Computed example of a mutant assay.
Amino acid sequence: MISNPSTPLRWHSFEAPPATETLALIICEAGSLPHARSFAAHWASLVPGCAFAGLETNLAYRQIAFAPVRELVEHETKRLGLDPLQIVLIGFGMAGQRALDLALCNVLGNVSAIIVDLPPDGVVVGLPPAQGAFRFVQHHRDADPDGRFFEELIHTLRRSAIDIRTMILPVGVGATDRAIQTFLVELVARASRYHAVERSGHGVSSRAGDRA
């Protein structure tokens, strides 16, 4: 376990294959680490070559200092020999909002993200020309019964030519798990292609039309 003394951040490494090509980083509230560890164990066999880690943080406050997060994640990803385009953030609820904030504010570079059940009071905090991809799994919620907030947010993101896919689901564990797995396999494969291109020395185009 590695912690940053200036903020309530803790990094936990879960699964790490011998030849790591990508990292799935699960954002979680302090105290919910066992759930994140369980998800990692459940998904690891689907994505060989993908390391899993958990980032514990305080989700009670929307405004946080981004610098300590950047420093901690950069330290750990460099240790794995990875680039931001090889990172997939995963978050549920407020942790999903935190993942979206980190990605859209370009705090960690061009990461991708899987966001499950974004809260209806969330806001888009930045709109960079992101190379990362965003995948949303959303359920019908009492707080946003007609899905208006979610539709408006997705519309805003798409206006910025960000790579987005969504799945709107009824409440149910099985469908949710399958949706997350589908997006995880897709984004890890995308990040692995980047890894292969980097190793070949040809680089990666940043044009929107070249994104997978």
Rank of each mutant, 00 (worst) to 15 (best):
residue 149 F to C: 01
residue 113 A to V: 11
residue 19 A to D: 10
residue 3 S to T: 13
residue 118 L to D: 14
residue 49 G to I: 05
residue 104 L to S: 09
residue 131 Q to L: 03
residue 167 M to F: 06
residue 75 H to D: 14
residue 5 P to L: 07
residue 64 I to M: 11
residue 172 G to W: 01
residue 46 L to K: 14
residue 62 R to P: 00
residue 168 I to A: 12
residue 155 H to Y: 07
residue 6 S to N: 12
residue 95 A to F: 02
residue 148 R to Y: 00
residue 72 L to E: 12
residue 60 A to D: 13
residue 93 G to I: 04
residue 211 R to N: 07
residue 133 A to C: 09
residue 13 S to K: 13
residue 198 E to T: 05
residue 36 A to P: 13
residue 168 I to P: 03
residue 79 R to F: 01
residue 10 R to C: 05
residue 40 A to E: 15
residue 182 T to W: 01
residue 129 P to I: 04
residue 151 E to S: 05
residue 126 G to H: 08
residue 197 V to T: 07
residue 80 L to A: 13
residue 149 F to N: 07
residue 112 S to M: 12
residue 131 Q to V: 02
residue 68 P to A: 05
residue 65 A to T: 13
residue 11 W to V: 06
residue 177 D to L: 02
residue 109 G to F: 03
residue 129 P to L: 04
residue 68 P to K: 10
residue 133 A to H: 13
residue 158 R to S: 11
residue 79 R to W: 04
residue 5 P to K: 13
residue 85 L to N: 10
residue 117 D to C: 04
residue 19 A to Y: 04
residue 172 G to E: 05
residue 145 P to L: 00
residue 28 C to P: 06
residue 113 A to S: 15
residue 193 R to C: 02
residue 59 L to T: 14
residue 58 N to P: 02
residue 149 F to R: 07
residue 52 F to S: 06
residue 92 F to H: 15
residue 50 C to T: 12
residue 176 T to H: 07
residue 68 P to T: 08
residue 18 P to N: 09
residue 164 I to C: 14
residue 119 P to V: 04
residue 74 E to K: 10
residue 123 V to E: 15
residue 49 G to Y: 06
residue 211 R to M: 04
residue 19 A to P: 02
residue 53 A to I: 04
residue 190 R to I: 05
residue 147 G to E: 00
residue 212 A to P: 08
residue 20 T to Q: 11
residue 18 P to V: 06
residue 27 I to H: 09
residue 207 R to S: 05
residue 95 A to L: 03
residue 145 P to S: 00
residue 143 A to C: 00
residue 137 V to F: 02
residue 32 S to A: 14
residue 151 E to M: 01
residue 207 R to Q: 08
residue 159 R to C: 11
residue 66 F to E: 12
residue 78 K to G: 08
residue 59 L to S: 12
residue 58 N to I: 05
residue 174 G to H: 04
residue 27 I to C: 09
residue 33 L to A: 15
residue 152 E to P: 01
residue 156 T to N: 09
residue 172 G to L: 01
residue 79 R to S: 11
residue 142 D to V: 01
residue 136 F to G: 08
residue 80 L to S: 12
residue 77 T to F: 04
residue 151 E to Y: 03
residue 10 R to Q: 11
residue 184 L to T: 12
residue 155 H to M: 06
residue 191 A to N: 14
residue 99 A to R: 09
residue 10 R to H: 06
residue 101 D to P: 00
residue 112 S to E: 14
residue 161 A to S: 15
residue 88 V to K: 13
residue 37 R to T: 14
residue 55 L to E: 15
residue 9 L to A: 06
residue 108 L to H: 12
residue 108 L to I: 06
residue 116 V to F: 07
residue 106 N to M: 00
residue 147 G to T: 00
residue 203 G to R: 08
residue 114 I to S: 13
residue 201 G to R: 03
